[in-house]
Amino acid sequence: MIGMTMLDLRPRVAATTILERRELADGVILLTLHAPELADATQPGQYLMAIPPSGEAAATALAVYEAEGKRASILFFVTGKRTRELANLACGDQLDVVGPLGNGFDCSGDADDVAIVAGGVGIASVWLCARELLRRGAHVRLFYGARTAELLVETQRFADAGCELVLATDDGTRGERGFVTDALVGARKPEAIYACGPSPMLRRVGEIANGFGVRAQLSLEETFGCGVGGCWGCVVPLTNASAQAPNFPPAERGGSDVVYARICKEGPVFWAHELRW
């Protein structure tokens, strides 16, 4: 969790079994895994690395969508070779994963009125966050946008749990037409913002949060290599003053005011006001 010391919930390689496979929309897959240790240890906003059963590509970073009892799930869009391979798995198949990984959302604090902003598959990273915030009694507004109505998945789950939904689609087929961030700008000012989605959306959320004068936690995405902090391939520029800044000399010692932090290790969740992107 950002702003807190890392909990000692060490990631591990877990052999999981697929319990359920649902196609939520064309090319949008929800896999529920039998993964007791993972489900137990996962904090909101954390992710796993799914090891390709074929062994023929790098592992894929995926948010842990739901974690309950002995079950954890992943929700993904089929965008390429690796997600296609995962989409082809069936009930009973084994899927090895490394996790849970990363520093997720800090859901503590006393904000009573919070906004969660999700774009596209970003919805997968925010369910555990919403659940946690609702549990501690916050009012949660979910601002959720996608290209088209069909791709606004799992809305019922959030509504049933008690979130107020504000939906938007690019083509206007459901909710407001346009970007979900446009809905956020005109909305009542929240006390805290949590967001996950494409980078342009997150940048906009950062600006809006700044305008509101509230803090925002953004869950970032980048092409991953190792997924565990070993390769420095997944970085984002951050102020060197951030508690999440990696070990790097400050400017007065020949270093820099801005440093690249690993999204997989220091993140994936960062404070919007500390990013320099």
Binding site: A57, A58, G80, K81, R82, E222, T223, F224, G225, C231, W232, G233, C234, V235, V236, F248, P249, G254, G255, S256, V258, V259, Y260
Partner: peptide, 14 residues
Amino acid sequence: RLPRLGNPTPRLVQ
């Protein structure tokens, strides 16, 4: 010898 910030992103492509 000296600190290096490293390259701009993206740094990896599958």
